[in-house]
Nucleic acid binder design. Sequence first.
RNA 1: CGGGGAGUGGCUCAGUUUGGUUUAGAGCGCAGCGUUCGGGACGCUGAGGUCGUGGGUUCAAGUCCCACCUCCCCGACCA
Length: 569
Amino acid sequence: MLRWSKAFIPTLKEEPKEAEAISHKLMLRAGLIRKLTSGTYSYLPLGWRVLNKVINIVREEMNASGAQEVLLPAMHPKELWEKTGRYELLNKDILVTYTDRNGKETIFGPTHEEIITHLVAGEVRSYKQLPQTLYQIQTKFRDEPRPRFGVIRTAEFIMKDAYSFDIDWEGLEQSYKIMYDVYCRIFERCGLNFIAVEADPGMMGGNVSHEFMVPAESGEDEIVVCKSCGYAASLDKAEAGKTSGLQPPASNLKPIKEVETPGITTVEKVSKLLKVTPRELVKTIIIVADGKEVALLVRGDYELNLVKIARFLKAESLMLADEGVIEKVTGGPLGFSGPAGLKGIRILADYSVQGMVDFVTGANKKDRHLLNVNLERDFKVEGFGDFRYITPQDACPRCGKVIAIKTAIEVGHVFKLGTKYSGVLKANFLDAAGKEKPMIMGCYGIGINRIIAAFIEQNHDKEGIIWNKALCPFEILLLPTNFAEPSIKEAAEKIYKQLLGEGISAFLDDREVSPGIKFKDADLLGIPLRLVIGKKFLDKGLFELKIRRTGEVKDLRDPEALKKIILSA
RNA sequence: CGGGGAGUGGCUCAGUUUGGUUUAGAGCGCAGCGUUCGGGACGCUGAGGUCGUGGGUUCAAGUCCCACCUCCCCGACCA
């Protein structure tokens, strides 16, 4: 077995310049990973051991749930992706492709809905063959616009992706519930502090999804949580509520008035100049949804949520209008748009605008804003909806109590796809009545690499990583302070062999370096238990067992007692 | 793609402002020898550099100019 003097564990004393996130720094320093290029990492022996621990947990739980492991190709024919429309949708963003010598374009799979659906479509004919849940653990490729935070967002990463096929929506409910529960068990076993939140399905399609989020400083996502009732949702999805801004309509409205606002385009500057608060302004944002312009109104102190708008409009694509489009639609430049006088365009408003009176808007003219604009009198809104992001000042949409917004790392995501893929790829079956129907699908992903980073984000101190038993690369580190001292060396070797004989994953630091280096490295690697064989052994025959997480120290006379402690840890 | 920062031995950096002192430096690491041995020990000796790349200005470029590449951060974007 492995001993340190022969191991490839390049630890770093100094903080690597390339890393910002804590987990990234520690993974580099402890010799778990090394970067090749932005977004691609090599896993060194220690990192690979941990990764395999995660994979084993995932595999065990997936198998226990009745899901079956498969391995699909990473190289996909472009045609399948064209059929579902995702070639068009994703090619400009994340697809990694290459063209072979015959001019045929191949995609390196960023996910596998097309492939698994194609496979199942060809093999499953009858309701008697359903339901099925298939999964794989495989490398995915995505041309990420911006890889970040070490292994948290990379261009190449290992995903556990699972797909369920059911005969009806009830079946999907069951399959989905099983996966949801399995995910909870997996993340619990890994020792992650996580929250399952309601989320928007995004590019995967479908109506319902849940994300498994690990609150951490270096997270890329924001989640909303309510301590009182347990409501939890992604920031994109969280309901902002209907009550904000609701006031009784005033009977004597002030007359509209145009004012000069030279070069003043932001809410902040306008409100400062006109001596009003941002909540007395209404922002008018022109968006382009599936090629059609729509004007969206929101109170000045809130932010529009494009995900909610796209969902409301059932739009495939949605973006902010550029300056040219704004000029064309409103007649005025960017920054001076307002609802009054807009023609030939749908106007939708966030609930926050409901009940506002005598508010400030752009005048659809350069350097001009309007005071005392009012609903109905000055413009008509086609409808109100929840189009904004929730803020920390908002009440919980379920119980009305205080909410918190936290950053988090997404480690898993489960979706109800329905027939989005089975429909176009003709994954049909005959039901008991002999009628052909599309299978009802779900898909379920876990970012394997992210679990490690997320765990380290939550389990470290100034000195290094603090592994738990589930993910640790080794359970116990033997640290003879002076390996050149024959009696210490002899004792260390003896215990090492004993532990290995017991099937305990032990690691021996047999390097002939000063004790300080060994102690520092030991804390950095974060192996849960450390047995020091040193001065106390020479003087009194005692072995010192230190628990990495608590710092608790026990002196043992009999190394046999170790086994009990390790097994009970 | 927009904004900001950075690129000098394996690592962390100084030197660049105002071109010429060095033969381009330090600490750590690395190799050899010796002394140490419970919190990154010490002494001596030594190896290791296209100063990101290409071009330009100049008698002279790590240092000035232009172009490009790479990395990091913020944003856009993104299961």
